[in-house]
Amino acid sequence: MFNYTLRRLLLAIPTLLFIALVIFLLLELSPGDPLADMPLTIPPEVRQSMRLALGLGEAWYIRFYKWLYMFAVIEPSHVLANMTGWNVALEGQRILSWQTRSPVADIIAQRLPQTLWVVGLSYLLGILLAVPIGVYSAYRQYSWFDQTGSFVSMVGFSLPTFFTGPLLMLIFAVWLGWFPIIYDTTLVVNSWESFLKQLRQMAMPVFVLTLYNAAQISRFMRASMLDNLNQDYVRTARAKGMTERVVVNVHVLRNSLIPVVTVIALGIPTIFTGAIITETIFRVNGLGQLLITAIYASDIPMVLTLSVVFAILIVLFNLIADLLYAILDPRIRYD
């Protein structure tokens, strides 16, 4: 197992290098200009000198090498220094966002809490809701509970968040006035009152995302349970006189969880990529909103860094999902 993990991690390095190169080249080839947002009243010569000041005068491979060096060496040292307080930050130019002219890593660190709070919480709630719903729906297939569950899942699946978001806003914020339209990222939770305020401002975005996550995972859970309920070992277990509770919750559930855990593990990186649409609609200025504004502004260092961080997370969680397989299913061995 250890050897396997090590081998996979080593293999990931060329993969990630390749991914970084492809993303860089795609951004390089794509149309768009970091100065497109500037007013037309700025004359072309000034634009040109601004471009040079952003470092756009150098050849692409030099810029890629510079970025890679900063990403692999300088930035990790700063992140480590910030997290531990040790004085290990290396000297040298950091990756600067073109929009803000400030280090990309600092902005990401600033945005992470919002995204984890809202997107992470809704993922967690989604799982907690989806697993029991999926299990019970499969156990009582075609009952009214199953039918209702299917209906809600279909609604959650098919209604896009850019529709449900503004709809909820109109109903709960504008008409009823229960929740604020604007998410206050500066709110500090240090008292009961501010905690309630945080709950109120998170309610709508979390609900929208939970609905979507729960819909997806509960469908997987239900399908996987149905596959297992008809297996021979279930009949055997029942024949041995076990209670339904033990049959379902111990034998069937554990076997059914194998594919679902993979789906859940592979979905975790999407928490970090944020929910671009939901974050934008509710002004939860997290990582998703950061990525989309960076894309609009052709802020290449920011887009590149974020995309590669996401790529790393995806590669990492793929590995974790594979390792979880082995833990859940004793038949699978990697060595």
Partner: peptide
Amino acid sequence: ASVFFGGD
């Protein structure tokens, strides 16, 4: 718009 006004 980002392409149209982009000046690339």
